[in-house]
Amino acid sequence: MSIIETNELVKNYGDLCAVDHVTLSIGKEVFGLLGPNGSGKTTTVLMLTTLLCPTSGTASICGYDIQKQAEMVRSMISYVPQDMAVDIKLTGRENVIFFAKLYGIPSPKDKADEALALMELNERADDLTRTYSGGMRRRLELAQALVHEPSALFLDEPTLGLDVAARKKIWEHIGSLSRRGMSIFVTTHYMDEADRFCDRVGIINNGKIAACGTPLELKAKLMNDVITVKIEGTCQPPDLEGVWYVGKHEDEISFTAENGKEALPTIAEALTRNNVKIRAMSLREPTLDDVFLQAVGQQEEPYGFADSKFRIMLRRRK
């Protein structure tokens, strides 16, 4: 059964299309929306959390329409935005009780204790949040979001700016919440994290969903082996049997092949024949990075930086 449903969701900022006919169906799982900065991840989340009206299309959470039944939607969800917003002059416990009261929970103190314990913050619960580390603040925000046991949890870049250990901890908590039957919608641009911790991922680029499925499925689509070649200068990808060109990232070009070991010398020969100087070659299993590269194309900005469009986006987003 799907909890979050979107149907041809569109959001335009002037003539900039931030989200372009996005159709998704998310059940009780950890769903990761991946994409480069400015690809429409946050805009999608803002629409699903009723903070932004879509230009066209519909979406629903637990069957409630995000526009017509916005208040019901808000009682089913929790939203943790990108910027860490906890009151530093309040203690951890006060921060959580505050949210529990706003959700209208009958016994806010007990519920807050429960949520704090779940996020392993009970020992520091009575310290001012000012003294918390970045990872603890993030966990505190999760505790705030959990206190009313939402059906759907929206996390916008939950691991941004955290160190490796803190990230791992956040993802472990996300996993355990999903096992409790919560639908979790995460945006991130860390491919390796999504690969390891998301049940399903959607890759979004320029507002469009470029690929969607489990990380395994997506990688399987890319065949077995990935060959990366570090070259000097530019080159025209050679046309070889059993070898497919994936994409280019900085000075590295990637191929995929059914049998990587055999493809290695073939590729090397073909490139040398085209007078391309090879610096290094490697053979490995595909990662989500490769999927991403194939779906999104070159990571460099395809067109020049459009200052006016950027300004329009900033203004609307605030």
């Binding site: 903070l51 969800i77 939203y79 860490m84 917003a85 706003l102 705030q144 605030k318």
Partner: peptide, 16 residues
């Protein structure tokens, strides 16, 4: 509250 991101959190709450 708006600049620091609190407002967005509050607006996603079921409170009026």
């Amino acid at each position: 509250d708006k600049i620091l991101g609190f407002l967005n959190k509050f607006l996603a709450l079921p409170t009026p």
